[in-house]
């Protein structure tokens, strides 16, 4: 089944776009859990949002309606709002500890 799918790739289908979006999403996830720099971590969540946005647009094209694109507009808005807050928080934290490492903030634990 899948081999058939690969061989038929002459024409680009929805699956290709979704696969790209899934790759971006997963790479963002990996980055989020492996990077220790808070700003890069947040960039990684933006990458995950980006993956979701591509999926939205691709599905929107597939279903021939505009809802997906409208959704992406709102994703952009929220991403901007989150980024503003996150960066303000990071600035605050950086002033405290003079480092961007997330690991210095690990006093609360069992």
């Amino acid at each position: 089944m899948m081999l058939a799918a690969i061989e038929n790739l002459g024409s680009i289908t929805l699956s290709h776009y979704i696969f790209t979006s899934a790759l971006l999403f997963v790479i963002g996830l990996i980055g989020f859990v492996t990077r220790r720099n808070m700003i890069v971590m947040f960039l990684c969540t933006e990458l995950m949002f980006q993956g979701a946005a591509i999926a939205m647009i691709a599905f929107g094209r597939f279903h021939l309606n505009a809802s997906g694109q409208v959704f992406v507009i709102f994703i952009l808005t929220v991403a901007a709002a989150e980024a503003a807050l996150a960066l303000a928080l990071v600035v605050l934290l950086y002033r405290r500890r003079e480092t961007l490492s997330a690991e210095v903030w690990s006093e609360l634990k069992e």
Partner: peptide, 24 residues
């Protein structure tokens, strides 16, 4: 706040991708 915010953003990305799939 750091922990809440960052993990919250990650979870938001998760359910957002879920929303995309639901739409799809």
């Amino acid at each position: 706040a750091v922990k809440y915010f960052f993990l919250g953003a990650m979870s938001a990305a998760m359910f957002l991708y879920g929303f995309a799939l639901l739409y799809g």
